[in-house]
Amino acid sequence: MRLHDSFVVHDGIRAKAYKPGSSKFYIDTRSGASYYRKGDQWHHLIRVIDRENDRYVETIRVLSTGELIRHVEEPLSEHFGHGGGKNQGRANKP
């Protein structure tokens, strides 16, 4: 009888920048592996939320193949209806 087992480690990094005396970040950046349950695949996610310059950038690729799944680069003020903002309308956007 032969037994075989393995494990894979995925990493990532996230950084937020705050101005002195402020409780809201002005930049939030994330890069690393992200598991997509619906597709049962690991993806590589790069996301930058830049409030100071009104920018939202997100790139998602399949980790195993590098296939581009999504690339968005738009003003943050026009980015709504995704993630935590799914239940917000235009009037409530940041």
Rank of each mutant, 00 (worst) to 15 (best):
R61H: 13
G21R: 06
I49K: 00
R47G: 00
Y26N: 04
K24N: 07
Q41F: 14
L68Y: 02
A15S: 06
E67L: 07
G32D: 05
Y56H: 12
V57C: 12
R55K: 14
S34H: 14
Y36I: 05
Q41V: 15
L68A: 02
H71K: 15
S31H: 07
I27Y: 00
H4G: 01
N53M: 07
S23Y: 06
S31D: 05
D5C: 13
T65E: 07
S64T: 11
Y36D: 10
G21P: 03
V48I: 15
V8I: 10
R2W: 03
G32A: 08
S23F: 12
S6Y: 02
K38N: 10
L63R: 13
G39F: 07
A17I: 01
N53L: 04
V8Q: 13
I13D: 06
I27M: 06
Y35F: 11
I69L: 15
L3W: 01
S34L: 13
R14G: 03
S34M: 07
D40E: 13
T65G: 15
D5M: 11
E52H: 09
R37F: 02
V62R: 08
E52N: 11
A33M: 02
D5P: 01
V8W: 02
I46E: 12
D11S: 12
K16N: 07
N53E: 08
R47Q: 07
S22D: 13
H43Q: 07
Y26G: 01
E67C: 03
K38P: 00
R55I: 06
D11L: 08
R70L: 15
F25D: 00
D28A: 14
G12N: 01
L63V: 02
R55L: 10
A15K: 05
L45A: 11
R70N: 09
T29H: 03
Y18G: 00
I60N: 14
I69D: 05
S64C: 04
H43I: 03
T29F: 13
R61K: 15
P20S: 14
R61L: 15
W42R: 09
V8K: 15
G32I: 05
R55H: 10
R2S: 08
T59H: 07
G32T: 11
L63H: 06
Y56D: 09
D54Y: 11
R51L: 00
D5R: 13
K16M: 09
T65W: 03
I46F: 15
F7W: 13
L3G: 09
S31T: 01
L3T: 01
E52C: 09
S34Y: 05
S22P: 01
S64D: 13
